[in-house]
Design a protein around this nucleic acid. Sequence first.
RNA 1: GCGGGUGUAGUACAACGGUUAGUAUGCAAGUUUUCCAAACUUGAGAUGGGAGUUCGAUUCUCCCCACCCGCACCA
Length: 446
Amino acid sequence: MSDENQTSPKPVSMDDIVSLCKRRGFIFQGSEIYGGLSGTWDYGPLGLELKRNIMKLWWEMFVDQRDDMYGVDAAILMNQKVWQASGHVDTFTDPLVVCNKCGQSYREDQLDYTKACEKCGAKDNYGQARQFNMMLKTNIGPVDNESSISYLRPETAQGIFTNFKNVVDVFYPDLPFGIAQQGKAFRNEISPRDFVFRSREFEQMEIEYFIHPDTWEESFERWVEQVHKWCDALGLPKDSVHELEVPEEDRAHYSKRTIDFEFDYPIGRKELLGLAYRTDFDLGNIQRVSGKSMEYRPKDGSTAFVPHVIEPSFGVERAIMAVLTSAYTEDEVNGEKRSYLKLPAHLSPVKVAVSPLLKNKPELVEKAKEVHQLLKKEIGAVMWDDNGNIGKRYRRQDEIGTPYCVVIDFETLEGDTKDTVTVRNRDTTKQQRVKIADLAAQLSKA
RNA sequence: GCGGGUGUAGUACAACGGUUAGUAUGCAAGUUUUCCAAACUUGAGAUGGGAGUUCGAUUCUCCCCACCCGCACCA
C-alpha cells in the first residue's frame, strides 16, 4: 500500500538512519558484542534521551494536562488467567503446519490437508502440526509445570483493564475517564524486521478510555483529533501521517471501528499507532472469568453498566523512527553539505552545547565552563564541547539535533559586549548575542 | 519460518590462498586556529562466531549468529 500516493518522499533512507543512530550513540544492536540477538535493540545515551523525551511528552499531554486521566504501572508478569480471559492464550497458540518439501507454513485451522501445497504443489507431504505462541513464556518460582506458567505481557493494555476496578474504587472518577500506562511489552515475532519497527521487546504507551456505549462515536472522533495533535507535537509533517480506516473483515471481531494511523517511513507507509473502539470486550471477559463485577454505577443513580473503551495505542519505537525520519535533513552551508536532525527542541537529547571559541585560551575556557555549569543547573541536558574547531562542533551538534550552541568568545570577556555570548541556531545557522544573565530564560523559552 | 543477498576499525569503503589487511572520515593526545567539518604531529581501532580443506584461510566449503530484500506472519 506504500507504492501509490506516496506523498513527499523523504530522501532519507533506512541506512542513513541506522548508521546515524549507531555512529552518534542513539541505538545499537542488542547483545552486539556476542553477535547480537534478533529483535532486540539497546539505547545509547542520546537515544535514551530522545525516547524519554517522547514518553515524557506523551505523559504530559495525555495525563498531566488532563483531569480525566489516571496513570498506572502494572507488573509485566501477570497471572496466566489474564491472558486466558483476554483471548491471548487461544489466539496466540495457532498450530502451524509446514510443508515438508518447500517449508511453507500454514495455520492448521486454515489448511485443507486434501489439497496440494499452494507454493510448491507437493501433495500429502505436510508435517506434524506444532504450536506457535507469540507470547514469551516463562515459569514463576522453582517448579516448572502448568500452574507456574507466566507470560511476558504482549501488550500493556491488560494491566490497565485489571486495574480498572482498583482505580474506580479509590478515585471513583466521573465517566468518561481514562487510564494510561507506559511500559515494555514482548512478542515472540516470527521475523523481527525493519530496524526497531518490529522487535521482540518494545515499549508501548496505551490508554483505555472508558465511556458509556452511547457516546462511543463522539468519543472516538475526539481521540482522532488528539492523535493528530500528538503527531504535530512530534513534529511529523501532516502529509506524512495517514488515517487508514480498517475494514470490518480486518478488524478484531469485537472492534466496531479501528483506525490505523500510518506514517511514511523510509521502509514505506506503515502503522505508527492504532485507535480502536473495543466495546466492552475486555472488561466483559474479566467479569466473566474472575466473577467480579466490572460495572460502573453512575453517580446520578442511573443504571449500572460495563463501560466500553476507546483504545489509543502508541508504539514508542515507531514514534522514534517517525521522528528521526521527519527530522533528518540535508542542506548546504557555505557550499558544504550538512546533514542534521531538525528535531523539535522539546525532543532533542541535548538542548544546548557550550563551547569556548578556542580551547587553548584559558580565559575563554574558564568562562565557558562557568556558563556551562550555570546552564546545566537551569536546563539540564547541556553538553560541553571543545573538540576540534568551532565549525566541527556545530556540525556535530547539528547531527544530533541540538537546537542551540552557545559560544564564549573574546567579546564575552571585555568591552561593551562583556558578559554576552553567541547563540547559534541549528536550523538557520544564524547567531545572535545574548547576555549571560538572560541566557537560561531565553533558551528554555525558545 | 521459507527463498535470495550481505557480513573487513565507530562509520563508509578497498584488497588478497602467503611478511606489518589498506584508504577516507570519525575517535584520543598534542601543536595551531578570533565562528561553520582548515592544517600538522602522534596514537588506539577490524576480517561476526565455530568447524573443515590447505604447508598456509580474511579469501574456498559447511554449520551457527546477525542484518538487508522478497514471501508468510502481525491476536
